[in-house]
Computed example of a mutant assay.
Amino acid sequence: MAKVKLPLLSAQVSNKVGEIVYYHRGDFGINVARIATKPKNPNTEKQQAIRKNIRNMMRLWLGRENPGGMRIYLNKGDRFDELMIHPQETFTDEDRKAWDNYVHVTRQGYKVTGRLAFIGVNMQRMYEGLVPLKKPGTEFQIF
């Protein structure tokens, strides 16, 4: 990573010129130039399973459950097992408020929303091979 000194570039810069990418590091207050690289996207089975779980947790949060059920993927060490779940109840505003309250009780000082807590806690549970929770701090399972 190369530091860029003025007046070569403006005070804040962000663009690509040829194979060089310029951007401003706000946390350090400096301009940076580096060689452009193509992002890696191995598109592995594990990555696909995790992305599907995130998408499905968001659907649950928004109350867009599929009436026919939803596939989630539980980590089993060297593989992810597919599990078809059927939410017994629709995710309600009361459930969302419970997650918002959970954030205020457990995450003081951090900017985390109830939605992010719901997705984060349940993603961790699925990665540990456990089914997701509908409400925080309970072992009441949504499925």
Rank of each mutant, 00 (worst) to 15 (best):
W61V: 11
P7H: 05
V121C: 04
T138V: 06
N75G: 12
M123C: 06
R55K: 12
N41D: 10
L8T: 02
Q48P: 01
K111S: 08
L116N: 13
F143K: 11
D95M: 14
R71A: 10
P132Q: 02
H86Y: 14
E19T: 12
H86D: 13
I54Q: 14
L116K: 08
R107V: 08
W99D: 03
G63T: 11
K111I: 05
M58V: 13
N122S: 00
P39Y: 11
A11N: 14
R71G: 12
R51N: 15
L133G: 01
V13M: 07
Y102Q: 01
T37V: 14
G137P: 04
I35V: 15
N56L: 06
Q108P: 12
S10H: 08
R55T: 09
F118A: 01
D27R: 13
H86M: 12
E65L: 09
T113R: 03
I85W: 07
Q88D: 13
P67W: 03
E65I: 09
G18V: 09
G29R: 10
T37P: 04
N101R: 12
A49L: 05
E139G: 06
I20Q: 06
A117L: 01
K111Q: 11
V103I: 07
I35A: 05
K135T: 15
T138A: 06
G77K: 08
P136R: 00
I50V: 11
W61H: 00
K46L: 15
F140V: 11
Y110A: 06
V21H: 10
R71E: 05
H86N: 13
I72S: 02
H24K: 11
Y23D: 07
L116W: 07
F91S: 05
A49E: 02
G26M: 10
F140L: 06
N101P: 02
E82M: 08
T90D: 14
I142W: 01
E45I: 12
R107G: 03
R51S: 13
G68T: 00
L8P: 00
Y127R: 08
L9W: 00
K52D: 06
N31W: 01
D93E: 14
L116F: 04
R64H: 07
Q141K: 05
I119Y: 00
D95R: 04
R107Q: 15
E45V: 12
L130Q: 01
M57A: 10
K52R: 05
D95F: 03
L116G: 02
A11P: 03
G114Y: 00
Q124K: 10
R96G: 00
N31I: 01
P67E: 09
Y73N: 05
Q12M: 10
Y23M: 05
G120E: 04
